[in-house]
């Protein structure tokens, strides 16, 4: 079940997606003990941010919307969380968000000093002005942020992509050219929920990001499409909730996957369950390694 993402080897291909339970070391250690291959932290910025008022989530049968507003304690206060998580032996990716390449470089440098195994650049949060997808929708800005971070750190640099653009492939290609070690796709799909009975949007921020089963097919398309334009590994995200979902992403070309919304549905134990389901699938289908599966739908 060992998974390789570029130079990195992880014990299995199931990572905790950013934004889910990645704020406290206790929760990240628990997710790892429940069977995850590793964790990606909540996105951390330059300053503490409380995020938006509630309602920040809206659930429905096949997924959810959220607009948390990038709540985080700020990079200066995150060192203890990383050191506790790393001390427990957890493969830890530090997610960061900044307003420009200087902020990203600073944040990445701090994360590296705290001891993370890789950094993930949030170029894709769909609901905070000045951050995330505002940068990640432009190939030029993606190139400059990724390039600056590449210069600033030695650890692997992953770029997390927004699906809310016309051409994900060319943005991913810009990240690769600038030195990214892997592409992570997708972040949530910009969306909103309305209450007709209250005659108003539900989320306090009006707009949010759609995730869960409802977006799996957007994620699969993104992974497949990016794989055609890039030669670096792609990490698939979006609606993974079973072993067969993981298999679909691998066959589409992903080297690993991240799981987020399914944690709400199945609890933190979802990682161990999905890992078991994936090995059952591989056994049934006659696969002896993940490598044999990756990208075979593209051949």
């Amino acid at each position: 079940m060992t998974s390789r993402v570029g130079k990195i080897t992880i014990r299995n291909p199931l990572l905790l997606a950013s934004g889910i339970l990645g704020e406290s070391s206790g929760s990240m250690i628990r997710v790892y003990s429940s069977g995850a291959g590793g964790v990606v932290t909540k996105s951390i910025g330059m300053e503490p941010r409380d995020g938006y008022r509630n309602p920040t989530v809206y659930e429905f049968e096949s997924g959810m919307l959220n607009a948390m507003g990038l709540p985080n304690p700020g990079i200066e206060h995150f060192s203890d969380v990383i050191s506790r998580t790393k001390a427990a032996g957890v493969f830890t990716v530090g997610s960061i968000f900044g307003g420009d390449e200087n902020e990203f470089s600073h944040l990445a440098g701090k994360m590296e000093a705290y001891g993370v195994d890789a950094v993930e650049l949030n170029l894709s949060c769909p609901h905070v002005e000045g951050f995330g997808s505002e940068l990640g929708s432009s190939p030029e800005r993606v190139r400059s942020v990724v390039g600056a971070v590449r210069q600033a750190v030695r650890i692997p640099v992953w770029a997390k992509m927004t699906p809310n653009v016309a051409d994900m492939g060319s943005i991913a290609a810009a990240a690769e050219e600038a030195g990214a070690d892997a592409i992570v796709a997708i972040n949530t799909v910009r969306a909103m929920a309305i209450s007709a009975r209250l005659r108003r949007p539900v989320l306090s921020n009006t707009y949010g990001g759609l995730s869960g089963e409802a977006v799996k097919y957007v994620g699969l398309r993104a992974v497949y499409e990016i794989g055609k334009k890039c030669s670096i590994p792609v990490i698939g995200v979006g609606g993974v909730r079973s072993g067969e979902d993981v298999a679909e992403y691998l066959v589409a070309g992903a080297s690993a996957v991240q799981i987020g919304t399914a944690v709400a549905e199945r609890g933190p134990g979802v990682f161990g369950q999905v890992a078991d389901e994936l090995s059952d699938f591989m056994e049934r289908e006659g696969f002896s390694s993940l490598k044999e599966m990756i990208g075979i739908a593209r051949r």
Partner: peptide, 19 residues
């Protein structure tokens, strides 16, 4: 924030108060 075990705001030694 979420009440459904994803946001980590209510974490208490790795247990979630909401869930």
């Amino acid at each position: 924030k979420c009440g459904i075990g994803v946001c980590d705001a209510c974490s208490l030694d790795g247990r979630l108060v909401c869930r």
